[in-house]
Simulated assay, not measured.
Amino acid sequence: MTPKVPSLKYSPDEITAVWQCASVLLDYPDELLLSRLDMLNEVAASLPAKIGTGLLETIEYLRRPTVSATQSEYVDTFDTRRRGCLFLTYFSNGETRKRGLALLRIKQVYARAGLNLAEEQLPDHLCVVLEFGALTDARAGLKMILDNRAGLELLRIHLREADSGWSGALESVCATLPPLKGNDHEVVARLIAEGPEEEQVGLNTYGMPDVAPMPGGV
C-alpha cells in the first residue's frame, strides 16, 4: 500500500512517483540508471505537468550520447561545489559536530523502519531520503525533507542558476512540498550570504565527506 503523505497538494501515488523517479535521476549516471530512462519517462509523462515536466527535462538531458561527459558534469555539479551538495544535513549543520547528531537521528529512523544502509552510504543523501520516503515511510521521509528545506531550496536555486540538466528533477521534488515559510526564506538568505557553519576540529566520518559519487544506486 502506498504510504500516506499528509497535507500536500498532490495525491500519495503522484508524490511517490515523483520522489522515486527523482531518487534515481539525481544519483550518479551509470549504465544501470541510463537503462531505466524509458521506464522513468513513462512514469513522468503520466504525472500532472507541474510535477512531471521537470523530471522529463532531466530524463531528456541524460539521454546525451556521451556517458563520460554526463558523469563528469555530475561530479562537477554535485561533488565539487558546496552549494551543489546532495547531503541535506550539511546545509543546516555545516561541518560541525551537530551534523553527526543529525545523521545519527536519521539512521535511527531508518533502523526503526527496518532499513539498514551500506557502510559507505550516508543517510542524509537526497537520493536515499527520497527513496525511503517513496517506498518505506512517506511521513518520516517528508519530515526529513522539511527539516532540511532551506538547504534543499538553496540546492534548487544553485541548479537553476547553473542551468544544470538535473535542475528539472529537483524542481519537481520541490513542487510536491508545501510553500516556503517566513523562517525558511530567512535561512535560505543566510545560507546564500554566509554558507553553512564550519568547525574543523574533532569531526569524524559523519562530517562533510570528500567523497566520489555513489555508483550503483541508493
Rank of each mutant, 00 (worst) to 15 (best):
G54D: 02
L33F: 03
Y28I: 00
E186T: 07
A22R: 05
R156D: 15
L142Q: 11
M214N: 10
I51Y: 06
Q71C: 01
A189T: 10
D137M: 08
R105P: 09
E153H: 10
P48S: 05
R156T: 15
F87W: 13
L126R: 09
R112F: 07
G216S: 06
Y10S: 14
E60F: 01
T136C: 10
P178I: 12
E57N: 01
L115G: 06
G195W: 02
L117I: 06
L55W: 01
R105Y: 12
T77N: 00
G207Q: 00
P6E: 08
D30E: 05
N148V: 10
E60W: 02
L32T: 14
L191P: 02
N41D: 14
A113F: 05
T176N: 05
E197Q: 12
L37Q: 00
P178V: 13
R190S: 02
Y28K: 02
R64N: 10
N116S: 15
L101F: 09
E42F: 08
D76Y: 07
D163F: 04
A189Q: 07
Y61F: 01
L142C: 07
F91L: 14
V218N: 04
L152W: 00
Y61C: 01
R139K: 15
L33K: 07
E42C: 11
F78L: 02
R112W: 04
P123F: 09
M144D: 13
L159I: 03
T77S: 06
